[in-house]
Design a protein around this nucleic acid. Sequence first.
DNA 1: CACCAAGACTAGCGTTGCTAGAAAAGCTAG
DNA 2: CTAGCTTTTCTAGCAACGCTAGTCTTGGTG
Lengths: 185, 185
Amino acid sequence: MTEKRESEKARRQEQRRRDILDAARSRAETDGWSAVTTRHLADAIGYSQPVLYGHFPGGKSEIMLACALEGFVELGRLCRAAFEGRGRREAVEAVAHAYLDFADENPAVYEVMFREPIDARFAEEDNEAELRDSFSALTETIGDPVGAEVFWGALHGIGMLEAAGRMKVDERRLRVSELGARFGT
Amino acid sequence: MTEKRESEKARRQEQRRRDILDAARSRAETDGWSAVTTRHLADAIGYSQPVLYGHFPGGKSEIMLACALEGFVELGRLCRAAFEGRGRREAVEAVAHAYLDFADENPAVYEVMFREPIDARFAEEDNEAELRDSFSALTETIGDPVGAEVFWGALHGIGMLEAAGRMKVDERRLRVSELGARFGT
DNA sequence: CACCAAGACTAGCGTTGCTAGAAAAGCTAG
DNA sequence: CTAGCTTTTCTAGCAACGCTAGTCTTGGTG
C-alpha cells in the first residue's frame, strides 16, 4: 500500500519535473533564456514559484543546467547514430552535419550547453560522465584524441558562429566538406 | 573661445566614456558580466545611473556591445601581428596562439564578443566593418575563404571550450600543432 | 545681476530570483 | 468519523536589477 503510494508520488514528482524542463526549453527556444522566468515557469506548470525550488534547489540556473545535460545526451546519441556503419570521411561529414543540425534546431539548448563554465557546485561526477560519453562519439570518429578535440572545437565554433549570425548557414555544406577534407584522412 | 570649451567638453565626455568601459570590463573580468550592474558602474565613475544612459542610450547591453567591439579591434590587431612575416604553417600556429591567448586572458570580453547575436538595432555597417577587418587577418593566413571560416570556427570553438572548462588549457600546444598540421598546408 | 540651457541627481516604477511563514491537503491512528 | 501530525502548497514580501520621469544644480551668456 505505502509502496504504491510512494511510487505514485514519485511518478507525479517526475512528471512535474518533466513539465518544468519542457516548459523551460520551449520558452527558451521561442523567446530566449532571459524570457524564462521563475514566475512564468510556475505558471506554465500550474503551481506557484516555490515548488520549482522543491525540484531544483539551485533555482533557475539548476534548471538551465538540467536542460544542458539532456542536450548532451541527445547530441551524443545523434552523433553516434550518424557515425555508425560509415567509412572514415563519410563518418566525419555525417557527424558534422548531425552536430550542426542539432545546434541549428535547438539553439537555446545548445547555447546553455556551452555558454558558461559548469557551476562548480554541480560538476560532480555524473554530469561529467554524460558529457564524456557524448564526446566519445567524436573520438571514435576521428581516432586520435587531440584530433577529436580540434574537430569538436571546429564543430562547436562553426555552430556558435552560425547561430550568432556570423557565418551564413546556407554555406554550411561547403564548410562540412572542408571538414571532411581536413579531418577525414 | 567657444571652440576650446567645446573641445574641452568633448574631451571630458570621451574620458568618461572610457571610464565606463574600463570599469565595465574590469568588473566583468573579475566577477562576470552579471556583476556588472548600472548601479556599480555609476558608482565606479563617480556619477549617478542616468549619466550612463547619456553615453549609452541602449543601457547595459550597449555598454557590453561597445566592449565587444573594442575586443574585435584588439583581437584583429593581435592576429595580424602574429601572422606578419611568417611562413604558412608557422603563421597558422602563431595566429592560433595569439587568438587563444587573447581568449584566455580576456575571457569576459571574449564571451561578450561571441555570446549572442548582435542586437539588430546595433548591427549597422560600422560594427560589421570592424568585424570583417578582424576576420580578414585569418583569411590572409589561410588563403581560401572557406578554409579560413573553418579555421576560425576551430579557434573559436577551442577558445570557448577551454574557457568553459571543457578542454584542459595546458594541453593547448598539442591542439595548436594539430591545427598547424590540418590547416598549415 | 538675471536668465537660461545643459547636466546631474533623487526618487521611484516594474520585474527579476528567491524565501520565510501561513495555509491547505493528505495520511495515520484511535 | 475524527483528531492530530506531516507534507505540500501558497501568499506575501525582500533585496537587487535595468531603466526613466521630473526636479534641482550648475556654469556660461546677455
